[in-house]
Simulated scan of single mutants.
Amino acid sequence: MDDGQLLRYSRHILLEEIGVEGQQRILDAKVLIVGAGGLGSPAALYLAAAGIGRITLADGDTVDLTNLQRQILHTQERIGQPKALSGQAALQGVNPEVVVEAISTRLAGAALQELVANADVVLDCCDNFATRHEVNRACVRHRKALVSGAAIRFAGQLAVFDSGRDRTPCYHCLFPEADEVEEERCATMGVFAPLTGIIGTMQAAEALKLITGSGEVVLGRLWLLDGLSMEWRSIRFGRDPECPVCAGLN
């Protein structure tokens, strides 16, 4: 690190659990964020501010007026722009040292596999089960840590999955893929604006803990937030021995 970086990240360096070594790991890290909406916005902003070396921001949608109530990466002036490009501009404004790659298409297939394989940590900030399960399969295949968040109405969820560790569950173990699952979308159900900030910021925190090796990440636990009462519940879960995605792993 140069003198400017030592000053910029001094408040991290002062933390015994992070220090110079941990901050260097952050600077060297590559993070893939799938979704540049309500969850991806605060997650990406905090990761960029923290100094993540390379952030790949993937979202196939464009900025809409209805997004601005909670998707703080975007501005009125960027309505109609691809969210990934709008997010790239915002992140580079926060920290020009961070390399931000914008992917303005829905990730799938070989492109998703390649990006997951090259990432240190993956953040699932999307809003549909099909993408969540495809991202999970790629993370299991390449043994990458996955930080998953969700927010709808006043309810938030957070969980971490890491197939690089022995006998840990994957997303499919917790939420089995099924054709009959009904999608709940913000466009029809609504969402409390600060809720996405709470969950997305926690996703950034878990990603930084994974990268620096500090603290205890929420493996094998699903955190549930009731935004109306501000009460948290934690549910423990384990690997499904018959999971079609991760059962063959050690």
Rank of each mutant, 00 (worst) to 15 (best):
D2A: 13
G4N: 14
Q5K: 14
Q5V: 07
L6F: 12
L7M: 08
L7C: 09
R8H: 03
R8G: 07
R11K: 13
R11Y: 01
I13A: 10
L15Q: 11
E16H: 15
E21M: 09
Q23S: 15
Q23V: 08
G38T: 02
G40P: 09
L45R: 07
A49N: 14
A49Y: 06
I52S: 01
R54V: 11
I55R: 10
G60S: 08
G60K: 04
G60F: 07
V63T: 01
V63L: 05
V63Y: 05
L65P: 07
Q69I: 04
R70P: 13
H74V: 06
Q76G: 08
R78P: 00
I79E: 02
Q88M: 10
Q88R: 09
A90V: 01
A90N: 08
L91H: 01
E97N: 11
V98F: 04
V99S: 13
E101L: 13
T105E: 03
L107A: 05
L107F: 04
L107H: 07
G109H: 13
A111I: 06
Q113W: 00
E114L: 04
A117Y: 00
V122F: 01
L123G: 06
D124M: 07
D124C: 01
A130P: 02
N136Y: 14
N136H: 00
N136I: 03
N136E: 03
A138G: 00
R141W: 12
K144R: 11
S148T: 14
A150C: 09
F154N: 04
G156E: 10
Q157C: 03
L158V: 14
D162M: 05
S163Q: 11
D166P: 09
D166C: 02
T168F: 05
P169D: 02
C173V: 05
A178P: 09
E184W: 11
E184S: 11
A193L: 01
A193I: 06
P194S: 05
L195G: 15
L195P: 15
I198R: 02
I199M: 00
M202C: 13
M202Y: 11
A204C: 12
A205R: 09
K209C: 03
G215Y: 05
V217L: 03
V218N: 13
G227V: 08
L228Y: 07
W232A: 12
I235P: 08
I235R: 12
D240G: 10
C246Q: 10
A247Y: 01
G248T: 12
G248P: 01
G248V: 07
L249W: 02
